[in-house]
Structure formats: C-alpha cells, structure tokens
Amino acid sequence: MIEVMTDGEDALSATTPRAGAERVAQVRLSTGYGEFLAVGYLDRDRGDEQIALVYGDVEGDGALTRLHSECLTGDSFGSNHCECGDQLSAALRAIVAAGRGVLVYLRGHEGRGIGLLAKLQAMQLQAEGMDTVEANLALGLPADARDYRVAAEILHDLGVCSVRLMSNNPLKRAALVEHGIEVGEQVPLLIPPREENISYLRTKRERFGHHLPHLDRTAGGA
C-alpha cells in the first residue's frame, strides 16, 4: 500500500516482503512523462536491484502494468535492433494517460537474461545470418532465461491483485498468473517495425509466440 502524507513526504505501509523482494527505498521521481513514485527493491535471492515506477493508486484490481526487461542498447542508446526503448516510452505514456499504473523495470533481464556481453555476441551472430534464438543456442545459452518471480513479488508488495498487462508476450501473462497475479486483460504494445528490426520481430512472433499482428500489415510481413 502506498500512502501520500500530508506534508508531501511519501510513506509505504509496512508489509512483509514475499520471498526475495525486499523494499528498500521510495522517492518521488519527476520524469518527462510525469511524476512517479520510484520504489526500489533488492532481490535477496539473486542480488539484483530492481525498481518499480508507480503512478496513482495501483492497489486492488486493474492497474495498467508493464514488466519491462532491462535493455541497455535499446533503452539507453536507442538501438534500432529491437523495439525496447520505444516500448518503454510508450508504456510510461500509457500509464500516465490511464491515470494509474506501474512499470516494473527488471534488471538482470538483459538479452532475455543472458547478460550484456553474451547479448552482444548473439547480435554479432545475428549479423552473420542467425536469428536471435539460433544465436543464443549457438552460444550454449537458453533462448530465453528470464524469470518473472520478482516482478510478481513486487506487485504483491504494492498491493496489486490483478493487472491490465501491457505485453505481446504470452509467457509474461502465464508467469504472473503462476505467481498469483491475475491478468484481467492483455493490452498490446505494438511499435511500428523498422527495416533494422523486422527480422527480429518476426522471430519473436514465430519462435516465441508473441502477438504481433501489425507485422502482417508490413510490406513482406511473414
């Protein structure tokens, strides 16, 4: 539960952390999208530092929610190889427009959980003709090593019972349900493809089952 105190300071009600998610800090964060409450967590199981950006009252049911996997190249450097940076911006704008919601930014998810250096190696293999799944497997790594346990723990801690999940990935929905967060609606987060990432997006659709119907409207869409 999040309470806004009358003196302008933020206080979080005392709750017992679930499993590995320990709430450590909270502060008002003014951004180009709006003012969020940034809530910091330590994943005691993995040692990762996590953050949730909370907008409005998210307790109970129906909060617009994005589980965003860390992507340094896309989120920070604006890489056109993926749509991650655009999805991050679109999700924050959508949450503010909805008046309430939460974005859980998942550290340790770089390259679908294989890490930054391995991700760069996989990108090199993709430049040589492999798709993203083939590249990860060629490196002896899983196609997708992400775990959404801590995201569900953070949502539980924030008092979120059910969500409107902004995602094209059916695995995210299944993971939240598995960890006790109901998904009332899955909201598409579709970014217009670029020449640089159209093959990557097709692989996400064909190999991971992402719901990307807008690719059919793209010239040459598979």
Rank of each mutant, 00 (worst) to 15 (best):
L103D: 02
L103H: 01
L103E: 04
L103I: 05
L103V: 13
L103F: 03
V104I: 14
V104F: 02
Y105R: 09
Y105M: 12
Y105A: 08
L106P: 00
L106M: 15
L106I: 04
R107L: 04
R107C: 11
H109W: 08
H109I: 07
H109Y: 08
E110L: 01
G111N: 12
G111D: 07
R112S: 13
G113E: 02
G113D: 07
G113W: 03
I114F: 05
I114W: 01
I114P: 10
I114L: 09
I114G: 10
G115N: 10
G115F: 09
G115M: 13
G115W: 06
G115K: 14
L116E: 10
L117C: 02
L117N: 07
L117F: 14
L117I: 15
A118C: 12
A118W: 03
A118G: 09
A118D: 15
K119P: 05
K119S: 08
L120T: 10
L120P: 00
L120R: 05
Q121S: 14
Q121P: 00
Q121A: 15
A122E: 04
A122L: 08
M123V: 13
Q124C: 11
Q124V: 11
L125W: 01
L125G: 00
L125V: 05
A127I: 00
A127M: 12
E128R: 11
G129V: 01
G129T: 03
G129P: 03
M130C: 01
M130N: 00
M130H: 05
D131Q: 10
T132C: 02
T132S: 12
T132G: 00
V133R: 11
V133G: 02
V133Y: 04
N136Q: 04
L137Q: 15
A138F: 00
G140P: 03
L141Y: 07
P142S: 07
P142F: 02
P142T: 04
A143K: 07
A143W: 02
A143T: 11
D144N: 08
D144S: 09
D144M: 10
D144G: 07
D144C: 07
A145G: 11
A145E: 09
R146D: 14
R146F: 11
R146C: 15
R146A: 14
D147M: 05
D147W: 04
D147I: 09
Y148N: 06
Y148L: 07
R149F: 06
R149H: 12
R149E: 13
V150G: 00
A151D: 04
A151H: 04
A152H: 01
A152S: 02
A152D: 04
A152F: 02
E153Y: 10
E153L: 05
E153M: 01
E153F: 05
I154G: 14
L155S: 12
H156W: 15
H156Q: 12
H156R: 12
D157G: 09
D157I: 00
L158F: 06
